[in-house]
Structure formats: C-alpha cells, structure tokens
C-alpha cells in the first residue's frame, strides 16, 4: 500500500467508515446477539456427551426438579413438541439434546434474570432415542431424559 498517497488513504478510510456504519445499521438485530456468541463448536459435536462437554464443560446430574415434557410416541419425527419446566431457581440456561441425531445439540436457550425458567419448542428427531434437557442453575447442571419413540424419522427421504 506504499504507493497510495496520503489523500487517497484518507478517502479510503472515509469509505471504509461509511461501509462500517451501513453494516451496523443493516445488522442491528445481530448486534445484540454478538455479545453472546453462537456456540458453533457445541452444535458440531456428534454425540450428546461431547456436545454437553463442548457447551458446558462440566458434568451434570439427573434431577426430579427438571420436568421434561415430550411425547411417548412421536408419529412424525420432523416435528416433536418438547418442553421443559423447572422448580430450580437462579436458572441461566436450558438446552436440549437428541442423542441419535447427526448432531446431538438441538437448541440452547439463555435465560436472563426475570425470565421464567421454562421453554417449549419443536425439534426434529432422526429416530427413536433419548431426549435430554439440561438446566443450568446456580452454576450447576441438572438434567432430565426421556425416550421418545419415533415412527417416521425427521430426516426426509
């Protein structure tokens, strides 16, 4: 870049600043999320054990205070309604793992203070397997699992 004169460098900087501010306006919704990075690595893990390790890096224990609501039998693996409620306090996150999916981690929710520690969503399931919900409460991990029988897998043809 040594061949650039001072003036063109200044123009270049102006242009770059312009691009920067346009990008900021365009991605305003993404800006809030930027403080909480997307856990790319955890979503790439194949098994639920590895995914839990990548996301939390700590062991978890089963707890009857975590209520996982999932159907016994899901006729359509493409849409399986799964919900979690918990009586634990000080909850900071709730995550869902489907053990036999190509990537076990399905969804992870950050629960700020003032938000009720309960979430309902719909997941895809490749075949019959365990669905595990992990609730992070006061820095500790509590879990609940349930086997859901899938008659038609959620992976298309």
């Amino acid at each position: 870049m040594t061949f650039l004169s001072g003036r063109s460098l200044a123009t270049r900087r102006l242009v770059l600043q312009g691009i920067g501010s346009v990008a900021l306006i365009g991605f305003a919704p993404a800006l809030a999320a930027a403080n909480d990075p997307y856990p790319e690595d955890a979503f790439k893990q194949k098994s639920d054990t590895d995914a839990i390790k990548a996301l939390y890096g700590r062991p978890h224990e089963g707890s009857d205070k975590v209520k996982l609501d999932a159907p016994e039998i899901a006729e359509n693996g493409a849409v399986v309604p799964v919900a979690v409620t918990t009586s634990l306090s000080d909850v900071t996150s709730i995550s869902f793992f489907v053990s036999e999916n190509p990537n076990a981690l399905a969804a992870s929710y950050r629960i700020p203070e003032g938000t009720v520690p309960a979430v309902a969503n719909r997941l895809k399931m490749a075949k019959t397997c365990n669905v595990t919900a992990i609730v992070e409460s006061g820095g500790k991990l509590y879990s609940a699992s349930k086997e859901v029988k899938v008659t038609v897998g959620g992976c298309g043809g």
């Binding site: 999320a33 909480d36 997307y38 856990p39 979503f43 493409a78 849409v79 399986v80 919900a83 489907v98 999916n101 990537n103 981690l105 399905a106 969804a107 992870s108 929710y109 950050r110 629960i111 700020p112 003032g114 938000t115 009720v116 309960a118 979430v119 309902a120 969503n121 719909r122 997941l123 895809k124 399931m125 959620g154």
Partner: peptide, 18 residues
C-alpha cells in the same frame, strides 16, 4: 429477555414459548 441458539434440529417453521 430471551436468547435462543438453534441448530438445524429445530423443526421447520419454528415455534417457541416462554
């Protein structure tokens, strides 16, 4: 008040309640 991180295993036309 709520932040969701989703992978492709969330069903098509996602539904969420909190």
């Amino acid at each position: 008040v709520f932040l969701a991180d989703w992978g492709p295993a969330v069903a098509k036309d996602p539904y969420l309640k909190f």
